[in-house]
């Protein structure tokens, strides 16, 4: 069947529209004309669950998959398969419970599994300093990679000053 708009290419998109009074209208379009008319299905957005399943099936974690399936959070009761299908966690404790699956996920999606930002003041100054140390070490590595030795030296001095105050990396 030919596309009803350009009348050249083969129609691959078939639509049934409900027009007024329950009347049906059929449309047969090629991919290009369908996109032009804005009716073609766009590629679905990848969801958290998609990425998690991909990571699990492709990595060495595949072996542990059946073990994961048995894990559930004692605090909120969510099972690993609940999390996998919804992509949403049930409580803060799940980050510990599903740690083995979440760490590779975070590294892939977020590019990191280590927070370096704001900290609630009641959590304490040592976390703030620890985070700053992590951030400075990243900065030092980048500076060395880019051969910015002057900047690297400044960052190194700041790291040493912090370390002297007794804030070791945790």
């Amino acid at each position: 069947m030919r596309c009803q708009i350009c009348k050249k290419k083969v129609a691959t998109v078939h639509l049934t529209d409900l027009v007024a009074d329950g009347e049906k209208r059929e449309l047969h379009l090629c991919e290009e004309c369908a996109q032009e008319k804005g009716v073609a299905l766009k590629a679905q957005e990848t969801t958290v669950a998609d990425i998690l399943s991909a990571i699990l099936s492709s990595s060495q974690l595949a072996k542990q998959r059946s073990e994961f399936a048995k894990v559930s959070c004692p605090a909120c009761g969510i099972s690993y398969s609940d999390f996998l299908s919804s992509g949403r966690l049930g409580c803060g404790n799940d980050y510990n419970v599903f740690d083995k699956a979440l760490t590779p996920f975070l590294e892939k999606v977020q590019g990191s599994s280590r927070h370096t930002g704001k900290v609630p003041s009641r959590v304490g100054e040592d976390v703030v300093k620890t985070n700053e140390l992590v951030r400075l070490r990243q900065e030092l590595r980048q500076a060395v990679e880019k051969e910015q030795y002057e900047r690297a030296a400044q960052v190194r001095d700041r790291i040493q000053a912090l370390e002297r105050k007794g804030y070791a990396d945790k």
Partner: peptide, 22 residues
Amino acid sequence: NYAFSPKLGYLTACPTNVGTGL
């Protein structure tokens, strides 16, 4: 009392918001 972990930051329902939550 916010749900917060020194390693992962502010804990959120979806792991795509965790950390700064920003």
